[in-house]
Design a protein around this nucleic acid. Sequence first.
DNA 1: TAGATTTAGACAATCTTTGACAAGAACTAA
DNA 2: TTAGTTCTTGTCAAAGATTGTCTAAATCTA
Lengths: 97, 97
Amino acid sequence: MILSELLKSKRETKNLLLREVASMIDADTALISKIEKGDRKPTREQIDKLAIALDIEHSKLLKLWLSEKVYEDVKGEDLAIDAIKIALKRIKTEEKN
Amino acid sequence: MILSELLKSKRETKNLLLREVASMIDADTALISKIEKGDRKPTREQIDKLAIALDIEHSKLLKLWLSEKVYEDVKGEDLAIDAIKIALKRIKTEEKN
DNA sequence: TAGATTTAGACAATCTTTGACAAGAACTAA
DNA sequence: TTAGTTCTTGTCAAAGATTGTCTAAATCTA
């Protein structure tokens, strides 16, 4: 499940209008629409607010958000998988210290 | 081995001066210095040229470069590992189609 | 159809990245 | 030491990318 889909489905489950969500997180309705369509990426602050407004576990949302940044960096690259694995190893070795 | 280290050690192995590498890739000497110190990230075009100038396997350099973009996105995050794994899965499933 | 919601396009504002220059630090050789 | 060379650092403007806002059009619903 992709971030934009999750946001949209959660909003629909809760029967909220775009403008309601928008006002809860201090944003333009059009912006929320774009986020749900995947045309715009939420900022980190917006992720925090969206988690509250839509009652989604914050870490779940943040994980998805981070993972999409990663994905965008490497998508379409032949070496995508290798590159991600290298980054993963680096993170893991760093954590041990 | 990190990208900046690799570039520097390769240059030294080949006994090249910063200004020589700089001219080979059409860049300012100061910029090469910063890249070797990790203060600046090379662009993709610079990676291509550096691979040739320093005689490094292109895919090796590109992998490192991509992996550092990924690393920068998630470093310091508690959820870094989870996020990377999610991205990895996504890439893998997409490749199957 | 009317009224409400959602989407799309265009543009300005903001933030980030990049490249260039100049001055300073470090090193080498005589 | 000094002169000459290499490397590093800081700053700034240019270029690029992202974000938010506005408006109008499209879609939906009753």
